[in-house]
C-alpha cells in the first residue's frame, strides 16, 4: 500500500477509535482530576464547549483511549502483533490507576487498536502507519483549533448521551 495513503487512512481509523471509545466511556461527562477541569473551563472561556473541553482536559491528564491507541501501535511496531498490544494494555491500565482513573478507556482503546492493526495488516497496513496516524489524530483534537474541536466533541457527546451535567 502507498505509504501516504496508508497514513491518512490510519489517522482516520485512529481518530474514530479513540474519540468514540473515550466519549462512550464518559470523558466529556466530568473532569477526572483538577487539571482536566482547569483545561475544560479555559476552553469554554475561549468560546469552546465545556464537555469537549473536559474531554480534551481528560486526555491530557491521564492515559485514555488516545494514549492506549498510540502506545499499542508503538508496541505492535516494536514487539509484534498482538503481543505488543496486549503488553501495552497492561501498562496503560497501571498508568491509568496511578492517574486516578479506573482504566476502562485506555485499556479498551489499546485492545481495540490491536485488533484493528491485526485485521488491517491483511490489506497492507503496517503498525507504523498507526503511530503517525495517531499523532495526526491527536493534533486535530489538541493542536490545530482547540475551541472548534471542543465544539465538535461536545456535539458528539450529546449524540451519544454523554454530555456533561456541570455548568
Amino acid at each position: 500500500m502507498n505509504e501516504i495513503l496508508g497514513i491518512v487512512l490510519a489517522a482516520i481509523i485512529c481518530w474514530f477509535n479513540f474519540v468514540l471509545i473515550d466519549t462512550w466511556m464518559g470523558l466529556p461527562e466530568s473532569p477526572g482530576v483538577k487539571g482536566a477541569e482547569v483545561i475544560g473551563r479555559s476552553v469554554k472561556k475561549r468560546g469552546g464547549d465545556l464537555a469537549g473541553g473536559f474531554f480534551q482536559g481528560n486526555i491530557v491528564c491521564s492515559p485514555d483511549a488516545s494514549a492506549g491507541t498510540l502506545l499499542a501501535s508503538i508496541a505492535c511496531y516494536a514487539i509484534g502483533t498482538p503481543e505488543g498490544g496486549l503488553i501495552a494494555a497492561v501498562l496503560v491500565y497501571f498508568g491509568n490507576r496511578i492517574c486516578a482513573d479506573p482504566g476502562y478507556a485506555g485499556t479498551t482503546g489499546a485492545l481495540s487498536i490491536t485488533v484493528i492493526i491485526y485485521l488491517t495488516s491483511f490489506i497492507g497496513f503496517k503498525p507504523e502507519y498507526f503511530i503517525v496516524g495517531m499523532v495526526l489524530a491527536i493534533l486535530t483534537i489538541q493542536g490545530l483549533y482547540q475551541t472548534g474541536a471542543s465544539r465538535l466533541l461536545g456535539k458528539l457527546a450529546q449524540k451519544m448521551g454523554r454530555y456533561t451535567k456541570l455548568t
Binding site: W24, G26, P82, E83, L86, I87, V90, Y93, P102, T107
Partner: peptide
C-alpha cells in the same frame, strides 16, 4: 465506566493475557 471495583473480567482477565504476552 465509573466503577473502581476489581472484577474477574476487568482487569483480571486483561492482565492475564498481558502478563502472558510479556
Amino acid at each position: 465506566r465509573d466503577s473502581w471495583t476489581i472484577s474477574a473480567v476487568f482487569p483480571t482477565a486483561v492482565l492475564a493475557i498481558g502478563f502472558y504476552a510479556m
